[in-house]
Amino acid sequence: MNVTYNSPTLLIQGVDIPHRFIYPAFALLLVAYLIILTTNIGVMLLILMDRSLQQPMYLLFFNLSFNDVLGNTVVLPRMMLDIVSTNPSISYSWCVSQAFFSHTYGTSCHTVMMIMAFDRYVAICHPLRYTSIMSPTMVARLTVSAWSAAITLVSISLGLAVRLKRCRSIIPNAFCDIASLYKLSCQDLSINNITGLITTVILHGLSITSVAFTYFRILVSCVSKKNKELNRKAIQTCASHLVLYLIMLWSGFLILISHRLQIHNSYRTLAALLFLIIPANMNPIIYAIQTKELRTKIVQKVQKVTQLQELNNVAFKPTAA
């Protein structure tokens, strides 16, 4: 087909939900999104306001929470709107923006996870050298590298998608991503597919290799040490980290496979929701609250708020005549 489609509006295929489940699905997504915002923004504000928490490990937590808020804010509100809409549509410019930020989120999940795994490796395997290795300068460099790598990889793939001439007007997904933008075109997609495959292999290869290597070294270090209590806590924390990483990894693989094999949109959407919602809800618990110092700060803040509420209730309580 040589037809060129230049309309600024695209139709979203959306999710095939029976009418009676539309509002329950909307409510579930809304609750999940509000929990993500509350927990992750709470962790970010606590780290920003408390100078004692402005250390390498907590600054990496900040990156993770920021990324979770970014990814879910780009996708979930728009998806909730489309669920209750009778004719979901989106402008092409916003579709491109959503694809950029959603893929930046997905790519940053891997790059940020790599530097967090490295941080845990240094903390557990080289505790005496942790301060010198994970200096503020090193943390800044690792953070910039993680986000720069993510933005660069996404920009290359998205640039190849934007250059294509459109001949279709339907996004075959519940939200915009780069693969869906490819499918708007009838041109030869060989270069796009090869580039996408190369960037995917590089990203996932580096991610899996670095995380596997660092956690293997952590396991070896824990087994060789005699402190059973310290080793138990380290292994427990690393195990929970690894479970979340595997959920993120396999749900990401499902999204890629569903596009390649033309699997039904509902399965692709389910995989995307797993990728977005589960890690973003669990990260503040596993990465933040399991950390003793941060957990103590959260408890102190909650106690202060409770005490202020009690004082306000006493102050405004009407006295007996």
Rank of each mutant, 00 (worst) to 15 (best):
N2F: 12
N2W: 12
V3H: 12
N6S: 14
P8V: 00
I12W: 01
I12E: 01
V15Y: 04
F21E: 13
F26V: 07
L28A: 14
I36G: 01
L37V: 03
I41F: 00
G42W: 00
L45M: 02
L48P: 09
R51C: 13
L53R: 14
Q54I: 12
P56E: 07
M57V: 15
L59E: 01
N63C: 12
L64Y: 03
D68L: 15
T73A: 08
T73H: 06
V75K: 12
P77N: 09
R78Q: 09
M79S: 13
M80D: 09
P88R: 04
S93I: 10
W94I: 15
C95K: 15
Q98H: 06
F100H: 10
H103T: 14
Y105V: 05
G106M: 07
S108K: 11
V112W: 06
M114W: 00
I115Y: 04
M116N: 05
A117T: 00
A117P: 00
Y121M: 07
P127G: 04
L128Q: 14
I133Q: 04
M134Q: 14
M134Y: 12
P136D: 10
T137S: 12
T137R: 15
T143S: 15
V144K: 08
A150Q: 07
T152D: 04
L158N: 03
G159N: 04
L160S: 07
L164E: 10
R166V: 04
R168G: 13
S169E: 05
I171Q: 14
I171F: 13
I171C: 11
S180K: 08
K183F: 10
K183H: 12
Q187A: 14
Q187K: 13
D188H: 14
S190W: 13
N192P: 06
N193G: 09
I194H: 05
L197P: 09
I198H: 01
T199Y: 10
T199Q: 13
V201R: 01
I202R: 08
I202G: 07
H204R: 09
G205F: 03
L206F: 13
I208C: 01
I208N: 02
V211P: 01
Y215P: 14
F216T: 11
R217F: 08
I218Q: 05
I218R: 05
K226V: 07
K228Y: 10
E229F: 13
R232S: 08
R232A: 10
A234R: 03
Q236W: 08
A239T: 11
S240L: 15
Y245T: 04
Y245Q: 02
G252V: 03
L256V: 05
I257M: 05
R260P: 03
Q262F: 10
H264K: 09
H264F: 12
L273V: 04
I278G: 08
P279N: 02
M282A: 00
N283Y: 09
A288K: 01
I289S: 02
I289D: 01
T291A: 08
R295Q: 04
R295C: 06
T296Y: 00
K297L: 04
I298G: 02
V299E: 07
K304I: 09
L308Q: 11
L311D: 09
K317D: 02
A320L: 11
